[in-house]
């Protein structure tokens, strides 16, 4: 357990000193800043119900691309880089278990991703102040929405870590993860709309519904609803991909 923590600290430190992380943060917040400004402006202009303002910020284009692009970019180096430079050998010949390395790396990526989102919560808090909206935004729905975001991105980051463990090509790892993320965000809904008669089948509909992460986010988390089956879905997804990473890592041992 202690070694998991050591790996976590080291990886988080690496994220914090990596220029890539800060470039992502700057680009994201510039873009998001403009978008949120637009939302606030139009809410003010149309005198819309300010309680709905947080949920209007979840569906922004910047949110979508942040979730599609960033997990893959953050996790691309986790194992691919270690494989490429050979430091995987130094790492795995230290007295550390495979799962401690895998979970430590994933946890650090998740923590850093959460850190990237933190300022957007602060923006909502700031907007409540007098000079801006002078509103009293409900904390519950905001918490639920960010929990949903955290769970979804946790799963995507777990896939990213897995993709990175498959190759020693950092770019390929990122591309794999981005394709997966994009596919998961768009695929189930597109399938549901284009399946025709088969889409009417109860089981197919239920299955696609479970995987429709965008729809689930909008219909549940963004409305402040926390559904345990969805938590189980994302936690299961994280466990599944981290397990696959462990298998991929130990495949070097298969002779």
């Amino acid at each position: 357990m202690n070694r998991l923590l050591v790996t976590f600290q080291k990886e988080l430190f690496s994220y914090c000193i990596s220029p890539v992380s800060w470039i992502i943060a700057v680009v994201f917040y510039l873009w998001r800043g403009f978008e949120v400004y637009g939302v606030v402006y139009s809410f003010d202009y149309y005198r819309a119900d300010q309680d709905l303002l947080p949920s209007a910020t979840y569906g922004l284009t910047s949110t979508f691309w942040m979730v599609v692009l960033v997990p893959g970019i953050l996790t691309m180096r986790t194992f691919a880089e270690e494989r490429r430079t050979g430091s995987l050998e130094t790492l795995m010949t230290a007295p550390v278990r495979d799962f401690e390395v895998v979970v430590g790396k994933w946890a650090a990526a998740s923590a850093f991703f959460a850190l990237l989102w933190l300022p957007s919560v602060l923006v909502l808090e700031l907007l409540q102040l007098g000079p801006f909206l002078d509103a009293d935004l409900a904390f519950g729905p905001v918490f639920a929405a960010y929990l949903g975001m955290f769970l979804l991105s946790g799963m995507l980051l777990a896939f990213g870590v897995f993709a990175s463990s498959l190759t020693d090509n950092v770019l390929l790892a990122a591309l794999l993860a981005i394709l997966f993320d994009f596919g998961l965000m768009q695929g189930p809904r597109m399938l549901a709309n284009n399946l025709g008669a088969a889409g009417q089948n109860y089981y197919v509909r239920e299955l696609l519904d479970k995987f429709d992460v965008m729809g689930n986010f909008a219909n549940w988390f963004a409305r402040g609803l926390i559904d345990t089956s969805q938590i189980a879905f994302y936690v299961g997804g994280v466990a599944f991909f981290l397990f696959l990473t462990g298998v991929s890592l130990s495949s070097r041992r298969i002779a």
Partner: peptide, 17 residues
């Protein structure tokens, strides 16, 4: 591994530390 110190042929170390 707890009883072993290993110096690999090519020493890969994290360049940013």
């Amino acid at each position: 591994r707890k009883n072993l110190g290993y110096l690999p042929q090519e020493v890969p170390i994290y360049p940013d530390l």
